[in-house]
Lab assay of single mutants.
Amino acid sequence: MSIQHFRVALIPFFAAFCLPVFAHPETLVKVKDAEDQLGARVGYIELDLNSGKILESFRPEERFPMMSTFKVLLCGAVLSRVDAGQEQLGRRIHYSQNDLVEYSPVTEKHLTDGMTVRELCSAAITMSDNTAANLLLTTIGGPKELTAFLHNMGDHVTRLDRWEPELNEAIPNDERDTTMPAAMATTLRKLLTGELLTLASRQQLIDWMEADKVAGPLLRSALPAGWFIADKSGAGERGSRGIIAALGPDGKPSRIVVIYTTGSQATMDERNRQIAEIGASLIKHW
Rank of each mutant, 00 (worst) to 15 (best):
L47E: 11
P249G: 05
R273V: 12
P60G: 11
G239A: 09
L218N: 04
I54R: 03
L199Q: 01
H110R: 14
P224Y: 00
T138A: 11
A280Q: 07
I256L: 14
E102K: 14
D161C: 01
D83L: 02
L137Y: 05
E46Q: 09
T267D: 14
Y95L: 00
A40L: 04
A123Y: 00
L146A: 02
S57M: 00
P217V: 12
D269K: 00
L136N: 13
G114I: 14
L79W: 03
G76C: 12
I45K: 03
H156C: 06
E108C: 10
I140A: 14
D36C: 13
D155I: 06
M127H: 07
L167P: 05
S281G: 08
L74W: 06
A211S: 08
D99T: 13
G239I: 03
L282C: 14
E119I: 15
A200E: 04
V29D: 15
Q204M: 12
G251F: 04
N168G: 06
E270G: 15
A246Y: 12
D113W: 07
S264K: 04
K252A: 01
A123P: 00
R189V: 08
H285G: 06
T186H: 07
A84C: 07
Q88K: 14
C75G: 07
L136G: 03
A235S: 12
A246N: 08
E145V: 06
D155T: 14
T267N: 04
E277L: 13
T126A: 04
I275F: 04
L199W: 07
E166R: 10
K190R: 15
E56I: 07
M115Q: 00
I278P: 14
D231K: 00
P249E: 10
S80V: 10
S96I: 03
L205E: 08
E237R: 13
T131W: 13
V157Y: 02
S57G: 12
A132C: 11
M67N: 09
A245V: 06
V31C: 00
S201V: 11
M153I: 09
M115C: 01
V106C: 15
T179K: 12
G114P: 03
I171W: 12
A148H: 12
S96F: 09
G43H: 10
P105R: 14
M268F: 14
S57W: 02
L120T: 06
S96D: 04
R59W: 04
V29I: 03
L197V: 08
L192D: 01
G76K: 10
K109L: 14
H285S: 06
L55S: 03
S281V: 14
N152C: 11
F70A: 06
R59Y: 14
G141F: 15
P253A: 12
T193S: 03
D48W: 00
N272E: 03
E102A: 11
A266M: 15
T139M: 07
I206Y: 13
A34I: 01
W163V: 07
I256R: 14
T179Q: 06
D174S: 03
I278L: 12
E166I: 14
D207F: 08
H156M: 07
A170F: 06
Y95A: 01
S254P: 02
D269W: 10
L135A: 08
V78E: 14
E237L: 13
Y103K: 00
S221F: 03
I140N: 14
G251Y: 15
A84T: 11
D174I: 11
K284E: 04
I275Y: 08
R91L: 09
A123R: 00
I275R: 11
R273T: 14
L136S: 10
E237P: 14
R271K: 00
G114D: 04
L74A: 07
D231Y: 05
A276C: 09
T261S: 02
W286G: 10
L74C: 07
K109A: 13
A40N: 00
E108R: 07
M209C: 14
G242F: 12
W286E: 07
A215I: 02
G154S: 08
M153T: 11
A170W: 10
R63H: 05
Q88W: 13
A133S: 03
D161E: 06
P249D: 08
N50I: 04
K53P: 02
P25F: 03
M209T: 08
K284S: 06
T27M: 10
S51V: 15
W227T: 03
T158Y: 01
D33N: 01
I171T: 13
D129G: 08
A183W: 09
